[in-house]
Simulated assay, not measured.
Amino acid sequence: MYQFSYAEVAQESGATARDRERQALGHAISLLERAEEAGPRSREAVEAIYVTRNLWSILVEDLANSDNALPDELRANLISIGLWIMKEAEAVRLGKSGSFQGMIEVTTMIRDGLAA
Rank of each mutant, 00 (worst) to 15 (best):
M1E: 04
M1G: 12
Q3W: 12
Q3A: 06
F4W: 12
A7Y: 15
A7M: 14
V9G: 11
V9S: 11
A10I: 11
A10W: 08
E12R: 14
G14E: 10
A15D: 10
E21A: 09
R22A: 12
L25H: 01
A28Y: 00
L32N: 05
R34K: 15
R34P: 02
R34W: 04
A35M: 13
A35N: 12
E36Q: 11
E37M: 13
E37V: 10
A38S: 15
E44I: 12
A45D: 03
A45F: 09
V46I: 08
E47Q: 12
E47D: 12
A48W: 04
N54E: 14
W56T: 09
I58H: 08
E61A: 10
D62R: 09
D62F: 02
D62G: 10
N65G: 01
N65P: 02
S66L: 11
N68I: 00
N68C: 10
N68R: 00
A69P: 11
L70K: 00
L70W: 08
L70H: 01
D72W: 03
R75M: 04
R75W: 03
R75Q: 05
A76N: 07
L78E: 00
L83H: 07
L83K: 13
W84K: 03
I85H: 05
M86I: 08
A89S: 06
A89P: 03
E90N: 11
V92H: 09
R93S: 15
L94Q: 13
G95R: 08
G98W: 12
F100R: 13
G102Y: 14
E105R: 14
T107A: 05
T107N: 02
T108G: 05
T108S: 10
T108Q: 10
I110K: 07
R111L: 04
D112H: 06
G113H: 09
L114T: 06
A115H: 13
